[in-house]
């Protein structure tokens, strides 16, 4: 699922488990919002006070941020920086990489602290890591016998043309 040229796939069952874990982290870290973003900039899940946030832009910029700091890390001989922290006047952003694959973003204010967020993120990362492992295994079976069906298998040229009318 995370290799080049193959699709990243999210299923209802895993999505619900991911949202549950994100909500648990949201509560335990006393944070405002929690996001999961894939490294290419696609938003995978969002929970908390997200209604006034442009979540699509947030996902894209987060991935760009991780990619840029990853480039910086390589320049000084590091593999990557696994945690980024941005401090604002009111709100702060804690960004970390889960299981080498997915970016976990926590937004919090004075009701929480960097220490608490770091602690809870670490705990949540293990559980999320296991889940993404499972998701990767499952999506590698897409389209194979016994695996889930790819929605694109049955689309016709007309379906595609209709999009552009």
């Amino acid at each position: 699922m995370f290799g080049s040229q193959s699709s990243l796939v999210m299923y209802d069952e895993e999505y619900q488990q991911i949202v549950d874990l994100a909500e648990k982290l949201l509560r335990e870290a006393n944070s405002k919002a929690v996001f999961l973003v894939d490294r290419n900039g696609q938003l995978m899940a969002a929970t908390g006070e997200t209604e006034h946030l442009d979540t699509t832009s947030l996902a894209s910029l987060t991935a760009g941020n991780i990619a840029a700091t990853g480039g910086l890390a390589k320049l000084i001989g590091e593999k990557e920086f696994s945690i980024l922290f941005h401090e604002g006047e009111k709100d702060n952003i804690h960004i970390s990489i889960v299981a080498d694959r997915v970016i976990l973003v926590v937004i919090f204010d004075h009701r929480s602290s960097l220490g608490l967020v770091r602690l809870r993120v670490k705990k949540a990362s293990d559980a999320l890591g296991d889940l993404f492992e499972e998701l990767a295994r499952k999506s590698s079976t897409v389209g194979t016998r016994g695996g889930p069906k790819n929605p694109f298998a049955e689309i016709t040229d007309d379906d595609i043309d209709n999009l552009f009318r």
Partner: peptide
């Protein structure tokens, strides 16, 4: 790498 999300029934692609 496209992202197919069955939960939100979305397909996302990058150009």
């Amino acid at each position: 790498m496209s992202f197919i999300n069955y939960a939100s029934r979305e397909i996302n692609c990058k150009i």
